[in-house]
């Protein structure tokens, strides 16, 4: 239907220099394709390179080798196709909620009246239409993250990158946020690359889960989540998949630890 390209990682490797002068291999030879409209979760323990991968997709980091493409366009800078939603929202406290959502449109030179209408529509979509003239500090953490998601969606990005967006939200609200995000995604089928270390969150949201393991950061396994949406967190298939993922991560964890001790 839409002719969006999705996003493709082509043999991406990222080395970071360390203080001891050695290169730390944060991401090793990752090749990954996210189709248009697909929701992919990167899951793994800290240090597995999932956030580095997202930073590269967002244009914030350059790969040491390999490349990331949206369609035929190589990502070399932020602001070239993917928009990142950050864990700590990054809302501007001096702007009202609506002005925050208008920001990306303002950058793109959208005239004020249209900007306003689109911002209000996005706020309605995340259920915050009534809070348009509030300031961010008057909202709860979950509401702030909804504003930040509305801000990203307002510019209709080719790819939405989400870096543990609900990590700072309390557990009860996190479940609600996941449900809302899924609803939003079902309405528009946007391409989403979502980083989390919460296995349940990934199973609830993803079309495909990419398991990553550290030392060096690489893809251990990819799992298509085929059961129907909205998913039931207590269901048997949910539990079965969860055990399988935890087992994979655990095995990979012991394996790399053994390697490390040698």
């Amino acid at each position: 239907m839409s002719a969006r390209p999705g996003i493709r990682f082509d043999s991406v490797t990222k080395l970071f220099g360390t203080s001891s002068g050695q290169a730390h291999r944060a991401v090793h030879d990752v090749t990954l394709s996210v189709a248009d409209g697909e929701f992919v979760c990167l899951v793994g323990p800290s240090g597995c390179g999932k956030s580095t991968l997202l930073a590269i997709a967002g244009g914030f980091e350059q790969p040491t080798s390999g490349r990331v493409l949206i369609g035929e366009t190589e990502i070399t800078d932020p602001g070239t196709g993917a928009v990142t939603v950050f864990q700590d929202y990054g809302l501007f406290p001096w702007r009202t909620v609506r002005d925050n959502v208008e920001y990306g449109l303002q950058v793109r030179g959208v005239p004020p009246a249209e900007r306003r209408a689109r911002a209000l529509a996005e706020l309605d979509a995340v259920g915050l239409g009534a809070f348009a003239e509030w300031h961010p500090h008057e909202l709860s953490g979950g509401m702030r993250q909804r504003v930040s998601i509305a801000r990203a969606l307002a510019v209709d990005p080719a790819v939405l990158l989400m870096d543990e967006p609900f990590g700072a939200v309390d557990a009860i609200n996190r479940a609600r946020m996941q449900e809302e995000l899924e609803r939003l995604w079902c309405e528009h089928e946007r391409t989403v690359l979502f980083v989390t270390h919460d296995v349940d969150e990934a199973i609830y949201l993803a079309d495909r889960i990419v398991l990553m393991t550290p030392g060096p950061g690489r893809i251990a396994e990819q799992i298509d989540v085929t059961f129907s949406r909205p998913r039931v967190r207590g269901s048997g298939e949910f539990f079965a998949l969860r055990s399988r993922i935890l087992e994979t991560l655990h095995l990979a964890g012991t394996e790399s630890r053994t390697e490390f001790e040698i």
């Binding site: 932020p78 602001g79 990142t84 950050f86 501007f92 920001y103 990306g104 303002q106 950058v107 793109r108």
Partner: peptide, 27 residues
């Protein structure tokens, strides 16, 4: 100025001048 604001400016593709006027000055 909170580096996160600057990352937001970059992810939305704001120009240098735009970032100064819209983000850095008010922040």
């Amino acid at each position: 100025v909170d580096p996160l604001y600057l990352k937001v400016a970059r992810t939305f593709g704001d120009s240098r001048a735009g970032t100064v006027a819209r983000i850095i000055l008010p922040a």
